Amino acid sequence: MFIRFHGKAISPFTNQPYGIFAVIYFLKRDGKLSSLDLQLYETTVNWFEEHLPNPPYYDDLNNSIRAVTWFKDNESTRHMINNLQPFFDLAEKYSVEIIKSVANKPPGTIVYEDALQIGVTAFAYPAQS
């Protein structure tokens, strides 16, 4: 099973909903976070930068393959998802809906894979929970 947390707004680049990291980044970019929430944002981002591999297509400034990532559903990933809690809290505090989509099989063509996540292109969104 695969899990993705995202907002409602569709990226004009990928034609898929913006993922949770982008959604919460937009709060920061738009100056909506309090100074305390900004610190929480930075701490959370730094933790993920240290513990979650960065797929190579994100290093490509243009993400020319227009891929998005989905978490795998395994014990290691549950730890990752638990560490997203500050982002869930920020989304709730600032009235931003975060949607959890679940797919029983890869939701597209896999272009990247590690122990925690897959990157896919050419996908359709499955049911949301």
Rank of each mutant, 00 (worst) to 15 (best):
F2I: 02
F2N: 01
I3T: 01
I3V: 05
I3Q: 01
H6Q: 15
G7C: 09
K8W: 08
A9S: 14
S11N: 13
P12R: 14
P12I: 12
F13L: 15
F13G: 09
P17A: 02
I20Y: 06
I20A: 03
F21A: 08
F21C: 09
A22H: 10
V23N: 03
V23H: 04
V23A: 10
I24Y: 04
F26C: 00
R29I: 00
R29W: 00
K32R: 05
L33Y: 01
S34H: 02
S34V: 01
S34K: 03
S35M: 07
L36C: 01
L38F: 03
L38H: 07
Q39S: 11
Y41I: 08
Y41D: 04
T43K: 15
V45N: 08
N46L: 11
N46I: 05
N46D: 14
N46V: 04
N46Q: 14
W47G: 12
F48C: 13
L52E: 07
L52D: 04
P53H: 04
N54P: 00
Y58P: 01
D60K: 05
L61C: 09
L61Y: 10
N62G: 15
N62W: 13
N62D: 14
N63D: 13
N63G: 12
I65E: 11
I65M: 15
R66M: 12
A67Q: 12
A67H: 10
T69G: 09
W70R: 10
F71M: 08
F71K: 08
K72E: 04
K72M: 05
K72G: 09
N74Y: 05
E75W: 07
S76E: 15
S76Y: 11
R78Q: 14
R78M: 08
R78P: 00
R78H: 13
H79R: 13
M80S: 03
M80D: 02
I81M: 10
L84I: 09
P86M: 11
P86W: 07
F87M: 09
F88N: 07
D89K: 13
L90A: 05
A91Q: 09
E92M: 11
E92R: 15
K93A: 10
K93S: 07
K93N: 06
Y94H: 11
S95L: 13
I98R: 11
I99N: 14
I99G: 03
I99F: 13
K100R: 15
S101T: 15
V102F: 02
V102M: 08
A103H: 05
A103T: 06
A103F: 03
N104P: 03
K105C: 02
K105Y: 08
P106D: 01
P106A: 09
P106T: 03
P106F: 02
P107N: 05
G108I: 06
T109S: 09
I110G: 02
I110N: 02
V111H: 00
V111D: 00
E113T: 12
A115W: 01
A115I: 04
L116H: 02
Q117L: 03
I118E: 00
I118V: 13
G119F: 06
V120T: 13
V120A: 06
T121L: 04
T121Q: 07
A122R: 11
A122V: 00
P126T: 09
P126V: 11
S129A: 12
S129E: 14
